[in-house]
Amino acid sequence: MKTSENCINRNYLNYVKSVCPKTKEKRSLFRAFLVGGIICSIGQAIRLIFESLLGLAGDELAAYVSMVMIFLGAFLTGLGVYDRIGKFAGGGSIVPITGFANSVVSPAMEFKTEGYVYGVASKMFIIAGPIIVFGVASSVLVGILYFIGYRIF
């Protein structure tokens, strides 16, 4: 039986590689830096405002800022703006917490046609799910390492 292993035509794949258009790396990096920087600056501005107006500090302040940024990401996704920002910015708008909000809200909107249980609720984490899984798993791992390190030294 033919499988993907014995189908491979190396010459052809090398040729395809040579004619394939390349991602414009410098441009992508610049745009990501620009938009990612703007998003983080907004976050920082909100942080400063909360700090001076509400007198928040530490974890509480961080939580408030995250909440506002997540709201903004979700809101812009709902308005249909965030995907346009993403098209321009690439990684610049995926990496900040607003991108995480976008990755949860966009499938929730998309699968509304399949109903609230099997659509919205079950498809909500198809993109964010892996991020949560690996985030939790790696935090457990770091926690164990930290625990062992703490005991030894």
Binding site: K22, N102, I127
Partner: peptide, 16 residues
Amino acid sequence: RQYRYPLELGCTRPPQ
């Protein structure tokens, strides 16, 4: 939605 990502997801498409 069947083959790729939700429409509103802010991701980029590769040039090919």
